[in-house]
């Protein structure tokens, strides 16, 4: 089973605006390894060739916090989604 199929099993209330903000200048100038591309358990980060920048599908965020910690250059500004938005675990 692919990871996006797994995420599709979860209940989400997506906000219009992303709770994850990326400073693309830091990505381009400082970050070599791009940890976000492989540490996210939802595999939500990808490199968009056309835009030449990192993209995140914030609506599927599991709110684990791994990217916030792994982005040691500080390009990822991660906060909790606004109240009642985001993932709503039914088992937890």
């Amino acid at each position: 089973m692919m990871v996006h199929e797994k995420i599709a099993k979860d209940a989400f209330k997506p906000d219009r605006e992303s709770h994850i903000k990326i400073d693309h200048n830091i990505c381009k100038e400082k970050c070599k390894i791009k940890y976000c591309l492989f540490v996210c358990p939802g595999h939500l980060y990808s490199f968009n060739e056309e835009l030449n920048e990192i993209c995140v599908e914030f609506a599927g965020c599991l709110e684990c916090g791994t990217c916030k910690i792994a982005c040691i250059e500080g390009a990822i500004d991660w906060s909790y989604p606004r109240g009642e938005y985001g993932v709503q675990y039914r088992y937890g």
Binding site: V3, K6, K9, D10, L62, E63, C64, T66, Y91, G92
Partner: peptide, 9 residues
């Protein structure tokens, strides 16, 4: 059957 996928630190 998988019914939920979750993660946390």
């Amino acid at each position: 059957e998988l019914v939920e996928y979750s993660a946390h630190i």
